[in-house]
């Protein structure tokens, strides 16, 4: 079994992350309910003939994917694996509204074609003329993690020497308001709904300062009582006692299910730094891909952004990190990184 390293990490988010690392020196304030990503100039990355049909998510994915490959000096990956919770909701809304408005008449195919969940993976393959393995996961808050596991499997068993893995979701224009409408106003999510794309290149050969993706585990359902035993088992499987974990990256979104993070944090000593990030980038099904972006950047730069840390931040080298996410008490994921 081969080890799996992360060669590059790129993120488009509600902050200036695309151009400048964590981009949190001058944080952008978020609107309360929903927030668009801080978009790069897509014209610089995508030819006009392709760009003219692309909705926000496709633009974000293709651009973040392109930059991740460039940063890793890879022209053609051996696999492209994408995770997206809501898929291409913008074009889905466009086509569905056209059906309703025109009562099934005068419909054109572009929005339908682009609404297919695998559009981003397909457009990246088309742009690169990449005939390799191509897959798309669409499982709510585990969409990105499923894609990451697929990539890890392929590097480990040597069926791919490099894999482009990405997680992305676009906000859309209509459906998000319905989701916001039914969110519990007292106990529900308090950070804004948002969008973003975080892309990574995985590979088997150790490069200088490369962060290793050691393990990933997901659970469809997990009771609060079982969080501790699941964490302990995960640490044991990977031969990392709690005190070896330098940073714990948590997906707090302000809802009553944040208790899960409190429980998880209680598994670790005070010397483990805790970080949360959704107050800066908002919540969406693949927000945890930003969590991984944060983890990788943290280990690479050895820099703790004070906006994200909670409690004491002891000064010490950051070598091992765990990223834990869940959504409304379901779809739990644990990712282990080491330097």
């Amino acid at each position: 079994m081969k080890p799996c390293y992360i060669y590059s990490a790129v993120s488009i988010s509600a902050q200036h992350t695309f151009d400048s690392g964590l981009g949190l020196l001058e944080p952008l304030a978020l609107q309360p309910n929903k927030v668009n990503a801080h978009h790069p100039l897509y014209k610089s990355y995508i030819p006009p003939a392709a760009l003219r049909r692309m909705a926000t998510g496709v633009k974000m994915g293709v651009t973040a994917g392109k930059k991740a490959l460039e940063n890793a000096n890879i022209i053609q990956p051996d696999a492209i694996v994408i995770g997206t919770g809501m898929g291409c909701i913008e074009d889905t809304e466009t086509f569905l509204n056209a059906i309703i408005k025109n009562d099934e008449a005068y419909l054109t195919p572009t929005a339908f074609i682009q609404s297919t969940h695998n559009t981003v993976g397909a457009q990246i393959a088309l742009g690169l003329q990449c005939k390799a393995y191509n897959n798309t996961y669409v499982h709510g808050a585990l969409s990105f993690e499923s894609a990451l596991l697929d990539g890890l499997l392929q590097v480990e068993d040597d069926s791919a020497s490099t894999v482009l893995v990405g997680g992305l979701d676009e906000l859309g224009k209509e459906f998000i308001d319905y989701i916001d409408l039914i969110e519990d106003k007292n106990e529900g999510i308090t950070v804004p709904f948002s969008e973003g794309a975080s892309f990574f290149v995985l590979g088997a050969i150790k490069q200088q300062h490369a962060v290793q993706l050691k393990a990933i585990k997901t659970f469809s359902a997990l009771t609060l009582e079982n969080v501790r035993s699941v964490f302990m088992a995960f640490l044991k499987e990977n031969a990392c006692p709690p005190e070896t974990i330098d940073a714990l990256i948590l997906g707090h979104n302000g809802s009553k299910y944040d208790h899960y993070y409190t429980e998880a944090a209680s598994c670790f000593p005070k010397t483990t730094v805790q970080l949360k990030y959704k107050q800066c980038i908002g919540e969406y099904f693949t927000a945890s891909a930003f969590g991984l972006y944060l983890g990788v950047t943290l280990l690479k730069n050895q820099d703790l952004p004070s906006l994200l840390t909670c409690g004491d931040t002891p000064k010490k080298p950051l070598k091992i990190s765990i990223i834990y996410n869940q959504y409304n008490g379901r779809d739990h994921s644990l990712i282990l990184l080491s330097l």
């Binding site: 969940h117 798309t136 669409v138 499982h139 499923s146 997901t218 659970f219 469809s220 359902a221």
Partner: peptide, 20 residues
């Protein structure tokens, strides 16, 4: 997928693929 997994009583690895 989640509903089917719950019906079957599967709590661990559950996911959905969509490549048309």
């Amino acid at each position: 997928t989640q509903k089917i997994a719950d019906t079957l009583g599967i709590d661990g690895f559950v996911t959905t693929i969509s490549t048309a």
